[in-house]
């Protein structure tokens, strides 16, 4: 199925799941008081869509991702994947964090194998593991240990570790945030091509307006904490996109305006 989509790159295979986030509010207890981070957030993501979440630092975007991943239950509201309520973590929704968080005692290949190993499907997944490594261009580093990798390579391994599970939803929590700008540009293009090839639903948290507009079908702009949806902007540009596209510049001005930064730009 992978080869089929390579032959017809204009029509991505839709394998992703829909996400329904309805009236979700969430807070943390801190020194006896409750810190509200999400305020009545509703969001519907279609299967195979690439949605970017933008917002001021610390507004609760990453918390929303943790709720979608099922790492925590929301204080109020409902979350569902493909119509089924999200009750806990599931390998159909995999997260790539800002830090690669590779297990340092495992080689690159065995890091990628964590998902199949944890799910008890290691034996039948050997080929899939090699494919995932090849997909991120690290087949030659299968036997390396994480401390031998550069930041960009480590993040690629983290990506392979997520993709090996064939996720329906790929949750990206600022995955390129700590990379240098050249590596970031390369990996943005890689992310787009991976997403178009594999067809998963992607939810990306980022601080980089340009990155959001370059990658996503839709950009959701959040308010300050407690976060609520301030704007839902469709990015109706075909892929592959060009960074110099005047329509992108126009959208960027609009988004920066929503973030209150248009005067500084």
């Amino acid at each position: 199925m992978v080869t089929a989509t390579i032959q017809t790159p204009e029509a991505p295979r839709v394998a992703g799941a829909s996400l329904d986030i309805e009236d979700v509010s969430h807070g943390f207890e801190l020194d006896g008081t409750v810190l509200e981070v999400l305020d009545d957030v509703s969001l519907h993501v279609a299967p195979g869509e690439f949605v970017a979440l933008l917002g001021p630092s610390g507004c609760g975007k990453s918390t929303l991702l943790r709720l979608i991943a099922g790492l925590e239950p929301p204080t109020r509201g409902r979350l569902a994947e493909a119509g089924r309520p999200i009750a806990g973590p599931n390998p159909s929704r995999v997260v790539v964090f800002q830090d690669p968080t590779l297990f340092p005692w495992r080689t690159v290949r065995r890091n990628v194998a964590v998902g199949p190993e944890a799910q008890g499907t290691l034996k039948q997944s050997q080929q899939r593991i090699d494919e995932a490594l090849a997909l991120v261009g690290l087949s030659k580093f299968a036997k390396a240990y994480p401390h031998q990798l550069s930041g960009g390579m480590a993040q690629r391994v983290a990506l392979a570790r997520a993709l090996v599970n064939d996720p329906d939803v790929l949750i990206l929590d600022e995955p390129l945030g700590k990379l240098d700008s050249l590596t970031r540009i390369t990996m943005q293009a890689e992310l787009v091509s991976l997403w178009r090839r594999e067809g998963f639903t992607a939810i990306l948290v980022t601080h980089d307006v340009e990155e959001a507009l370059f990658l996503a079908n839709r950009v959701i702009v959040f308010s300050d904490r407690p976060a609520h949806v301030k704007a839902d902007i469709p990015v109706d540009l075909p892929y592959p996109r060009h960074r110099g596209d005047p329509r992108l510049a126009e959208l960027r001005r609009q988004v920066l305006g929503l973030l209150g930064l248009d005067a500084d730009w």
Binding site: R66, A69, G70, L71, P89, N90, P91, R93, V94, V95, F97, D99, T101, F103, V114, G115, A118, Q119, R161, A162, N165, I171
Partner: peptide, 10 residues
């Protein structure tokens, strides 16, 4: 974070 990663991977 190691636990978070492992848990989301099943």
């Amino acid at each position: 974070a190691y636990y978070d990663v492992a848990r989301t991977l099943g």
